[in-house]
Design a protein around this nucleic acid. Structure first.
Lengths: 224, 224
DNA sequence: TAAATACGGAACTGTAAAGTTCCGAAACTA
DNA sequence: TAGTTTCGGAACTTTACAGTTCCGTATTTA
């Protein structure tokens, strides 16, 4: 950025002004394993300090990097956060070994591994702390979800499979059901500060999700 | 905050240290109509700039007050915001004239007045922008925010009345149903950045709430 | 082996905003 | 009417942090 450099010491370069030869093959190579360390540090700090509570010094320190190293990769805090969020949402979807217990209820519960709960709560804290950042920078496309896509996709897959088996009417509103799961998890974590644990999830499934999916009425189309 | 003040200029006061006589009857009286103006200004700015985007100068300017006037009432930005949030949630619960259309569906929808939608969205934007503030200061008691209490109470009233009429089984999980409403509204506003409008609410009621309440099964106890 | 670029670390600059203090004017009380 | 507290407004101080620059060292290519 802004590499105009009005130096007068080297006049010999004037001739090459229009050459535009970056000649990138020189010097020490950039260590791209540092990228992940820095992004990870950024996510950690975002999770428990929020966007405005996070300083570039914190990130650099946590990643054991110099600030110059950070700014060599991302030209601003906003850019770093933007990419950190993308990195956080890189999904390791393992569609191959989906749970298959025979009932939707147990499939959904099987997806709730302790590790995924912990990770999900961390993501929630990150989003929660984004606050004013979201008002400055329009977060990626689609209004900024993407963060729940991974879980949401798996849930949708399980429910669709169950509907396909004939467990529920074909007109069941799968989208809305998926929204309920994610919304309840988020609200419970962010606002109520309670864990989205197995017991609560079972109550939600039995008391809300399954009855809603079983509903013989055709609910109006919801698509947002 | 940090009002220790180790001044040495006035030794005469030392004698009265334990007197504690504010003698408040002197001088111009504080104009308490300014309080509301300032709190309202704070809420407005919180709504479209967030906690960290809001400056005390903005608040003072918007309320046409001096900063000294603000700090005479609240000793810090955090304190001001704290009270502004409380003030925002002062509920004008009009339990007397609850809607009574005869069906729960229409009662719930009737509660969603255009004015309350607009107000609700403003509140959501405020919460959205709270971001890091929530991580610093544990907001109000009970872990929750209380911002949804007003609406939640009315919803619970309507649903209970409907259950009392015999529209739904007596074992219907009213608490959980209320949680669904509030959670979906919050998530939709905070994360999806979409309006919680009449159409979506109708879809939610028809597709989720009513089927869940109608559920003949006894769901496990959920009480948190 | 020399030039170029990377690294972690630290010092530095510039700016924005929290919080304080002072001003002249207004309002209240003894 | 004199002393006290309020008001809006503005100037001021202090602090924190984004972003830049420089250092000594390590790594890579020509």
């Amino acid at each position: 950025m802004k590499k105009i450099k009005t130096e007068t010491s080297e006049q010999s370069e004037v001739v090459e002004l229009l050459a535009e030869k970056p000649t990138r093959t020189l010097g020490r190579k950039r260590d791209h394993t540092r990228d992940a360390k820095i992004l990870e540090a950024a996510i950690d700090i975002l999770a428990d300090a929020g966007f405005d509570g996070m300083t570039m010094d914190m990130v650099a320190a946590k990643a054991k990097a110099g600030k110059a190293t950070v700014y060599r990769r991302w030209s601003s805090k906003a850019e770093l956060v933007q990419e950190a969020l993308t990195w956080m949402n890189r999904s390791h979807l393992e569609m191959e070994h989906l749970p298959d217990t025979g009932t939707l209820r147990d499939d959904l519960l099987a997806l709730l591994k302790p590790q995924s709960i912990e990770e999900g709560e961390k993501k929630l804290r990150v989003i929660m702390g984004l606050g004013s950042f979201l008002q400055q920078v329009e977060l990626s496309e689609e209004g900024g979800i993407g963060i729940f896509d991974s879980w949401d996709t798996l849930n949708r897959e399980l429910i669709n499979r169950s509907v396909g088996r004939g467990d529920f009417p074909a007109h069941a509103d799968v989208d809305l059901a998926c929204q309920v799961i994610v919304s309840m998890a988020a609200f419970r974590g962010l606002v109520l500060h309670k864990a989205f644990d197995r017991h609560f999830y079972a109550t939600l499934i039995d008391g809300i999700l399954l009855p809603a999916l079983k509903n013989p009425q055709i609910a109006s189309n919801n698509k947002d």
